[in-house]
Structures are given as C-alpha cells and as structure tokens.
C-alpha cells in the first residue's frame, strides 16, 4: 500500500549531489512531493529532506539506491521514528482595514506572524505540519489569496538517541 514517507538524507556538500539525488528519483520513476536542502552545522555536510510516496518495496529500493550514491553519508526513513515535522508558508492575503483584526485573531490562534501590511494586503507566516498549514490556508481563502509560497518539509527525530553525534558530544563535554 502506498504511504507517505519522510526520507532524511545526510550528504557531502559536493558538486552535483542534488542532481544525483533528484536524478535518481526521476530516472527510476519515484515521486518527490517536496524536497528541502541546506547545510547542517558543518559547512561541508548538508541535509536533504524528501517527502515521497510508495509501497514498502519502493521505499526500500529508494533507501538502498540512495545509500549507493557515493556522496550520501546517511539515509533514514523518519516515518518509522517518532519525529517532529515542520513546513513554512508565506501567504499574501487581500485584506482592507475592515477585516484586519479578524485576520490577526486567526494568525494568533495558529501561532503565526504578520510580517507585512499594506492598505490592501497582509503577508502572514505560519509554521507547522502539513495539516495545520492546510487548515490555515482554507481559513483565509475566502478573503482572497494574492500569492502563496510553501517550503518543503523539514523533519527531525525526537529524543537524544537518533544520531551518533550524541556520543561524540558527550565525550567532548566530559573532556572539558
């Protein structure tokens, strides 16, 4: 059965890595729903987060094929761990003075921010998981969405166990 999976891929920050990963998905006919990439705390290592759909066999193949790429350091299917996921949406809504306070109320309820106001528009920033963002977007749609942009999904495992970095950090603290 097809399920949504969040694959997090730790890669060396080298020439063409994104193309290799993206090419692997397109070349083998896998789906990419969203893709986010940026460097980690180390400038030469980046984390990619890819949201994809597939049955167990496809997901297993995706992970194995990713691991085969020379510049890929680590691959995890975060869906099988307890994890936190976040997306960011920036939405520009048509709002005149009359409805401004209504919008403020909604933004506060969703713990978002209003980041720009003009006499006829507001730009709102909301973070959260997919469902929350979708709910907010539906809420403001009747007012008129002028423009909307969403980031891909970011995800991180809960708890301290997930990374081998933990052991290294503990050791360096003990040594201090």
């Amino acid at each position: 059965m097809e399920k949504r999976h969040i694959i997090s891929i730790l890669v060396e920050n080298k020439f063409g890595v994104l193309a290799r990963v993206a090419g692997l998905f397109s070349g083998r006919g896998y789906n990419i729903e969203s893709l986010t990439v940026n460097s980690t705390d180390k400038h030469d290592v980046s984390m990619m987060t890819i949201v994809t759909y597939g049955d167990d066999r496809i997901i297993e193949q995706i992970i194995k094929q990713l691991r085969k790429l020379i510049n890929v350091l680590k691959v995890r299917d975060l869906t099988s761990y307890n994890h936190i996921e976040r997306e960011l949406v920036l939405v520009k809504v048509y709002v005149t003075q009359k409805y401004r306070s209504d919008i403020y109320n909604m933004v506060n309820t969703f713990r978002g921010n209003v980041v720009d106001i003009t006499p006829e528009s507001m730009v709102i920033e909301i973070t959260g998981d997919n469902d929350k963002l979708q709910a907010f977007i539906e809420l403001v749609r009747p007012y008129g969405i002028i423009e909307l942009i969403r980031s891909g999904c970011l995800a991180i495992g809960r708890g301290s166990k997930a990374t081998s970095e933990m052991e290294k950090l503990k050791q360096s603290h003990n040594n201090k």
């Binding site: 020439f15 063409g16 193309a19 290799r20 090419g23 692997l24 070349g27 020379i70």
Partner: peptide, 16 residues
C-alpha cells in the same frame, strides 16, 4: 558530460 552520463555511471567528477 557529467550531466549526460549521471544515470549510467557509478560515480563521476569534474575536476576544477
């Protein structure tokens, strides 16, 4: 050529 051959190599380099 690195781009053209990407799906059919085990790995590739462009030396700058």
């Amino acid at each position: 050529i690195v781009g053209i051959t990407r799906p059919i190599v085990k790995h590739s380099y462009l030396v700058t």
